[in-house]
Design a protein around this nucleic acid. Sequence first.
DNA 1: ATTGAACATTTTAAGTTTAAAATATCCAGA
DNA 2: TCTGGATATTTTAAACTTAAAATGTTCAAT
Lengths: 163, 163
Amino acid sequence: MTAAGKVRERNAMRPASKQRLRLWLRLLRSARAIETQVRERLRIEFSITLPQFDVMAALVRTENGMTMTELSRHLMVSNGNVTGIIDRLVTEKLVLRQAPASDRRSFIVRLTPKGEALFALAAKAHEGWVDDLLADIDADEAERIVNDLDGLARNLRGGEINS
Amino acid sequence: MTAAGKVRERNAMRPASKQRLRLWLRLLRSARAIETQVRERLRIEFSITLPQFDVMAALVRTENGMTMTELSRHLMVSNGNVTGIIDRLVTEKLVLRQAPASDRRSFIVRLTPKGEALFALAAKAHEGWVDDLLADIDADEAERIVNDLDGLARNLRGGEINS
DNA sequence: ATTGAACATTTTAAGTTTAAAATATCCAGA
DNA sequence: TCTGGATATTTTAAACTTAAAATGTTCAAT
């Protein structure tokens, strides 16, 4: 038997629970490896942090901004967390907080023109980095995994799923 | 054409770079969703944090402990980070630092018997949680994704790959 | 033996993250 | 109108995280 065949046989013998545990560890490890790369490049090339990039990526899709709670849910981070990230983005004049007339509890967060311009550059670079980092995975493989992960995410209460 | 067929056609039209970007966003989202669940349950049931669990998981596999640097590389976190996590685990008497005679720069970190006992319980529970969370993915699917992610990880300098 | 580069770890500063408590506001029902 | 539960956000405390600088140690080449 080939070496690869032996690996397959050994894996097939694992109970499903062990396979899923392996999958989870791989998932975490891969996500961390990519995150580390992206974080470092964002810092060096654009002087922004990954969470700040994530917030801007959420905002750029919306016509009318998002509230703090919407951001928190979309990014799957705690609500208190968003406050600090937005504070720093406001300081850098990349986003602004607007008080809607209708509900004085909430704020609408929007990108400023400066934020839009910076994000456009960063997003373009970001797509290129990811394309390089994932170069070993072709489009079909990528789609298959995306679909598998979609099924997975439906089991987990909480987070939104977006394009 | 079926709705699923339309989705496939639309996805097939995307350039590979967009597909890879989608994959990365899904990967991050799935990992976060699982992490949130695991973190909460570890805290509630075992009063430990996820990073502390990760450290103990690394240590339990070793016969002779690991140095701080080995831990840092294995977990793919910065070296300074490990210091604080170990400090807190030492306070809880779950691990201990040993000074090896050979090299006074380094420390060997080991699980205490208390740490081993706690981790054994937590690891068993953890495997069950992950099995539930990933229940939609069968063993074959899991193995396929694991293999795909392995190929991916090889592109990324740094992190170790482990069973 | 000395020196200097490499290595292991800790420290520091800034930012992120969470859970939980506190504040302020909204809104529906009595 | 009033009251209470729900909602939106901020604050707080503790832990995590990183990058970079500082400290101490090792080791090889002189």
